[in-house]
Design a protein around this nucleic acid. Structure first.
Lengths: 206, 206, 206, 206
DNA sequence: CATGAATGAGGGTTCATTCAT
DNA sequence: TATGAATGAACCCTCATTCAT
């Protein structure tokens, strides 16, 4: 009985926490990073300002969660792709394509999040449970798959996964800044070409 | 005569500007990004707060200059390397190695600057005269060289240059966060291997 | 119950607002217009600076309220006079006399308020709900009364009301600057004589 | 000889003073009251900031002179009218009309000056050599003329002159705030009608 | 637990005035 | 006498955080 009550309370607590987080994200999307004030979040979540502090130690804590939340969404998409029945190299391409599509839909939020992302880079790079490492893990696993099926040669998959994640972010950053009408598919194709074939001249021609 | 006086004054002005900038950088290194306040900078430079505004329109202007200043230094090292008499691929390796050495020496400042860098990413990506594009240019030229000498195949050098810069940054970020005692040379070697040979399995048949 | 609590809170809020306003007025009286700084007001009201901003959007808002507060008091006295059972022309005289008495009591504050008054003249002249138009209305109504009872001829009562208000202000300004010991009653008599009889020579033929 | 040099220097000094003043007025007209900073004036006058202080004790001194200068211009127009060969009552009307025309041409400057005017009201009301009293004098003289030619009855001309000046100012203030397309002539006519005939009902009808 | 009024340190910026040259 | 760089007090305003209810 007490257990049931406790778990019910815990669930409620988690719900409120999520409410606050989503309110913050909503503000982020609508009005941008620096409009996220505790007052604003409280109003958006229809809670008292003091209440926010029951669920987040301080503003930094909240902001970190917001960033996490934003990138987690993308990380989950990666996970879903990883779980599907595709060739490993096709998956890598899908990671990139999906990222680009995602950023096209969420330009405003990601533009803002990049700030948080790099402001708090130390944290998520240090924190092995963060979206960052979760994503690197997914990428690394996919690379492992590719190695095992002989599609690519043996490399340090974590290192390459990290680089790949970073390359995607780079592509996204440019896409946000030069929102060109032309499709991003070419960029993704070029990226995959680079990662798979490298820069070395094709030996076949020789 | 008047000219001499003028040039002396101009030099003095430039000196004061540099003084302020260095004060800001000193604070950055010692106490971090967000401790850079106009008050603090003024005190550090031993000037009145109002004087700072004679040399920088506002805080943003100062901060941008600080960021530029930090990365420009590195960009100049790249330029110097590009000018030397090396094989183009060796140059690419040197870019990476030099970056890693540089960050090892300037850990604290670059760790902070990354924040500025990404907070103001829109600016320097949009501003084609920024250190960012200057660096991309150097990388692209080196890649062009490599293509012309048949060392690498034909690719979009600007795109790859951008990705390469980003990959170096990624390496630097990790190096800062896991300041391992072990040398970074392996990382650079792996990076070059990836960029040159790609992930595709070696054509063992040859 | 909830209602009672709410109304109690509202009353408290109104009280604090009045407190701040009065603090500002106190500074105005004691040290003059331009010594009213948010810091000073906060200290005088024994509140934190930030608290002031809960009750007044910004300094301008506070200052406007101060001005309004000063002149509204006089406007209310006019209203009270207008409501009494007097001959309309007697009322006009009373408006003037009361003003002079009022300024004699509140010299210091009104001397300062004149500054606010004319600094923000555009506002209260544009704002038809301001003390300015409230007063003009009262004067115009009294003039209307006088017309309807045949005491004065038909004129544009709003125009004349405006001029009358201004003439009173003129009298007050002079009274403040030459705080003569001699009574102001003569001034008021002369004013009324001018407004009623005009400058035209008396038709001695009658 | 020394005398000549001295007088030449004095003239030059006066010239520079006028230069500065006109620069301030130019800024006032173009950009408004609060854009008059010592820096701005110095630049406009093509002088060093420190030089301004050789000609005006401080900013207040300069601003007072600016105000004086603005109203003096109008005062001189009054003087010119007073000197012409008109019936005294016609002159009074001309004072008003001219004021309205003047303000229509110099809306921006007078709108700003009104602030200075009333901020420094104490000064010019106290200072019997100011434009204020100069104007009152002109008005009073004209009224004296009217009395002597039997056009109006005997009244305290200084008092009425003061009220008349104030009434004109009132008209001007309203004109600035409600810059109606319709001509101001009606307003002037009404004003003159009030001052000459008063509010008392016309006796002829009785 | 929830509330939200109160806090107050701290921020960036302006500009009248001074004074060494 | 003219200069203008340097000054620094003063200003308005924000907002994360606390705590009495």
């Amino acid at each position: 009985m007490n257990d049931r009550k406790e778990s019910r309370e815990k669930a409620l607590e988690e719900l409120t926490r999520k409410d606050i987080l989503e309110s913050a994200v909503r503000i982020l999307k609508a009005e941008g990073m620096k409009r996220i004030t505790m007052d604003r979040v409280a109003k958006e979540a229809d809670l008292a300002k003091g209440t926010i502090y029951r669920y987040f130690r301080n503003k930094k804590d909240l902001l970190d969660s917001v960033a996490d939340c934003g990138f987690m969404e993308l990380a989950q998409e990666y996970e879903s792709i990883a779980g599907r029945d595709h060739a490993p190299l096709a998956k890598l391409g899908l990671f990139a394509t999906t990222s680009m599509k995602y950023i096209e839909k969420n330009q405003s939020i990601l533009k803002e999040l990049r700030t948080v992302m790099f402001t708090t880079a130390d944290q998520y790079i240090s924190d092995k449970t963060s979206w960052y490492w979760k994503t690197v893990d997914i990428f690394a696993s996919t690379l492992d798959e590719a190695i095992q099926t002989g599609k690519i040669r043996e490399i340090n998959t974590v290192k390459v996964g990290t680089l790949f994640l970073n390359s995607i972010n780079s592509l996204m950053a440019h896409h946000v800044n030069f929102s060109t009408p032309k499709s991003f598919e070419e960029d993704v194709r070029d990226l995959m070409d680079l990662y798979i074939n490298g820069l070395a001249p094709k030996p076949t021609l020789q």
